[in-house]
């Protein structure tokens, strides 16, 4: 694999698909060639007072056209700047970064929560086994129709406006879903719930974590997660989410 250099890419589309949720396609052949589901890219703000790159998970990869899709939420001033950009504008990006999901299993549960949903789309595309897709939202839904081509979709909303009222685990229990592999990405409380569910049902689970990052390449040690065993690189019970992750087996990490 070649090194994920910082590169100029070109925005080909950037549209709001739900309130404060944007879908951006980047013409980025070098990134799309190497990218795997579950990896992320670092995007750089033009306003240099915002120093640090923003890590955004890859939602879709189109290797034929040399493009990648990012679906992101306006979470602060950096992502607000991205949301204001138009097609044909340049975007500085570095990637793909991180390890990505390992494709495995015969019957899978794909669980996405909030802005953890986008990376599950490319995973759903590339995973060839039977798929059940559980998407958890606070209220407003997005991307759910695009998942329908790849498996049965179950929805949970906190306010009960769509699907099961509650969280993704409530939906899984309500629908009595079973699987031999779980893939999950979402906020830490959700991942904690997924880990507990996977442990209880003895299902192998891959969890994609997030944390505030600086370098994105494993040097600054800003984005660590606690691990069960001593990690060979850090020599303490910490792994780097950007470099060793963001995807970990549930039993490896303490959430």
């Amino acid at each position: 694999m070649s090194v994920a250099m910082k590169r100029k890419t070109v925005i080909t589309e950037n549209v709001e698909i739900a309130k404060d949720i944007y879908s951006m396609w980047l013409n980025a052949p070098d990134i799309s060639r190497e990218a795997r589901p579950g990896q992320f890219v670092s995007l750089y703000c033009r306003d240099r007072s915002k120093l640090l790159p923003r890590p955004i998970s890859i939602c879709e990869i189109n290797k034929e056209q040399g493009k990648i899709r990012l679906v992101y939420r306006i979470a602060g001033e950096g992502t607000r700047e991205f949301a204001g950009m138009d097609a044909a504008e340049d975007m500085e990006a570095m990637g793909p970064l991180g390890n990505g999901f390992t494709l495995e299993g015969k019957k899978a549960l794909l669980i996405g929560g909030g802005i953890g949903i986008p990376p599950m789309l490319e995973l759903a595309k590339q995973l060839s086994c039977e798929k059940q897709i559980v998407l958890g939202y606070r209220d407003i839904t997005f991307l759910e129709k695009e998942f329908e081509a790849y498996g049965k979709v179950y929805i949970s909303t906190e306010d009960g406006s769509r699907g099961t009222k509650g969280n993704v685990i409530d939906a899984i229990r309500e629908e009595s879903l079973d699987a031999d592999i779980i893939f999950a990405c979402g906020p830490t409380p959700m991942l904690r719930g997924v880990k507990a569910y996977a442990t209880e049902h003895k299902i192998k689970a891959q969890l994609s974590l997030e944390e505030r990052m600086a370098c994105g390449i494993g040097a600054c040690l800003g984005c660590i997660c606690k691990t069960k065993e001593v990690d060979h690189h850090s020599n303490v019970k910490n792994k780097r989410i950007c470099k060793d992750g963001p995807v970990f087996y549930a039993e490896e990490v303490e959430l």
């Binding site: 640090l52 944390e211 660590i224 997660c225 303490v236």
Partner: peptide, 13 residues
């Protein structure tokens, strides 16, 4: 000896 460092978040812009 190895040091585990501080809890996260460790970074703020």
């Amino acid at each position: 000896v190895p040091w585990p460092g501080n809890p996260t978040p460790r970074i703020a812009e």
